[in-house]
Write a protein that binds this DNA or RNA. Sequence first.
DNA 1: TGCAAACTGTCAGCCGCTGCCAGACTCTCT
DNA 2: AGAGAGTCTGGCAGCGGCTGACAGTTTGCA
Lengths: 213, 213
Amino acid sequence: MTETRTSGEQGLRERKKARLRESLVESGLRLFLEQGYHGTTTEEIAASVGVSQRTFFRYFATKEDLILAAVAGIDERFLASLRARPAHEPPLTALREATRDHWSRLDPRSHRSLSGAATVLRDNPEVVDAVMSHCRSHQERIAAVIAEHTGVHRASDPRPDVLTAVFVAVIGTAHEAWGASGSTDTDDLLAAVLDRLDLVPGTVAGDWGARGA
Amino acid sequence: MTETRTSGEQGLRERKKARLRESLVESGLRLFLEQGYHGTTTEEIAASVGVSQRTFFRYFATKEDLILAAVAGIDERFLASLRARPAHEPPLTALREATRDHWSRLDPRSHRSLSGAATVLRDNPEVVDAVMSHCRSHQERIAAVIAEHTGVHRASDPRPDVLTAVFVAVIGTAHEAWGASGSTDTDDLLAAVLDRLDLVPGTVAGDWGARGA
DNA sequence: TGCAAACTGTCAGCCGCTGCCAGACTCTCT
DNA sequence: AGAGAGTCTGGCAGCGGCTGACAGTTTGCA
């Protein structure tokens, strides 16, 4: 009661905000899964946790932001893994290994969020746009790390941007295939991503002689 | 008046529809350029060609569709060029050369539309999502052609999808760089696309020794 | 010329989203 | 403990994209 707050702790206000935010994400995702993305209004989501629609929009700029919030933080952790890779590593390899690293470090909660969000995406293709939009800004930061590691200047050398775009695009196809396969196991998603990343060099080269599977 | 219509000709009704549609696209793009995408309402666009908002939405499912309509037909022509490539050609080369072919066949009107649409995209990044969404469906059809030419089955071999995703992603980066460069010459855009496509094999391989520029 | 089909305008309404204002809550300082 | 400042919330009004329904007009064809 009378104790002063030490730095790093949070007051009641901030704890409440964080809890409300979490509730909104959780409840929103559940509703999306139950009755579809378009079949769920922002007012419903707000009401399901006992706040007004106006408050909903104080926590999330858009309805789509709910989904991005569910997987927030994952980007940061991936970037951290990427930065931790040795600078001399071939860039595509670094991206591949960083993906593996960061995946293995994901806590179960993140896996569940990821799986939930991915399911919403599979069932509501309209939402993919928003996520891709977010991916583009994520791409920016990945390219920056690649440029730093390889020592090239993005202004004059487009390779970091090209490689990053390729990386993100390949993840996109893996994601789509994973969704189409009906799997909800995120390990399958990781496997698909890694497989396809390995395919890239041979695929862009001319030699399609040896067919897979 | 009393003449019967020969096959291939269009009646007054269809001509009117086509003209109205064109007017809406043209007027819409102009307004977007003049006062921004969000600064232009669908009602304004409709009024600018003398129809009601309701009619606007009978021609275009969404406001964003206006922009897609401006570059409609380009996809088809690209696919035609791609199908015309020899089947034995390395797939990435085929995509590259098809891009060149189809570009050289574009009439000046298409160039202008493309340039206008690209400018709208540069000035209104929010619209990019919609275009990317359209690109994803375009991607589907490209992958189908690639699979056919190379004789692989997309169900078991992800390479057509991977290659196509890479292709589209690289075009995306070229587009962005072109926009950032401030150029409005579509030839510069083509050059950027071709350059970056050529960079891909070396970029995904490890050898970043030789720097560009 | 007259009928059926296609097209359009009007209206009412839903939903995402925002600005504004008043009231409630939290935190801090005394 | 209490007052003041700052923060958070709900309610309201409103805009813009978008849709369904209905009625009136235009076009195509016989």
